[in-house]
Amino acid sequence: MFKKKRPLQSKSEIVLRNIVVTFLVVYMGIFLVVPIVMAFLGSFHLWNPLNGTYKFIGIDNYIRMFQYPTFWTAMVNTLIFCAVVVLFRVLLGLGLAYAITSKMTRHKTFFRTVFYMPTVTPLVAVAFVWKIMYNPQFGLIDQVLGLDVNWLYSSSLALPAVMLMTIWKDFGYAVILFMSGLLSVPSDYYEAAHIDGANAWQTFRNITLPLLKPTMIFVVITSIISYLQAYVPVMVMTKGGPGTTTYLSSYLVYDQAFVKYNFGYASAIAFFILILTAVLTVVSFKVTGEKA
């Protein structure tokens, strides 16, 4: 069915359109365009709201940023965090969705509801619960596993611990998306493959996976965008520590902007994150071979 381009006819259509367009243009102007421009200009200034400093310093903030070791630590951590969490989110999401949608599984709704539960819970509260779970004396994890590990104070285990919490919190969203992707595969495709003598793996590899590509792209890109912005788990669980081992890029912005009030410097880092977001989005489109 093709769409007819229908000119606006009645008066009420024009009124409604004008209301919506005016509202959106004004709103986006005030809450999107102006702040971005302000932050961009601010990134070239020494800007501290507490003592009212706003002095032009050229690209000094950017130079300082690239010379600041914590910035690089945070960037490396963020990339590791993104890669690992996205990988597990996709693997768990796809695997569990496959298991749930299998003809042999009963109680599908029950499992789907359970897996999605962590996703609909508030992150701040969940991060506090996990922080106590990692407690070396009486935390659930060490108790159950019979270990004596101080997860959040270990420079090698703190970041993995934060990642594990994030994977637990977010895998359910991927399960739901992959489930609806799997259910939308026409069943005669599977029948045809069965008649041709394809085994389960061949069917999965050659039919299911290619058809899930749009879902995969959606999951990967939305995950990358959101993890580049993650700061709450770190703020609640480790405050970036021990040392700077769990600094993530957005936590660095939070820290510089609202703990140390270096607004100009924080804006420079924020712009770097924006560019990184754009680059990674384009790269993931390229890698998956889809047009943007």
Binding site: L24, M28, L32, P49, S250, Y254, A257, F263, S267, A270
Partner: peptide, 19 residues
């Protein structure tokens, strides 16, 4: 522009919005 609001990290807008 509407789609852009989803892509722009909070860290870019929050400082000027706060100001």
């Amino acid at each position: 522009f509407v789609m852009m609001t989803m892509m722009i990290p909070w860290s870019v807008t929050i400082i000027s919005r706060y100001t």
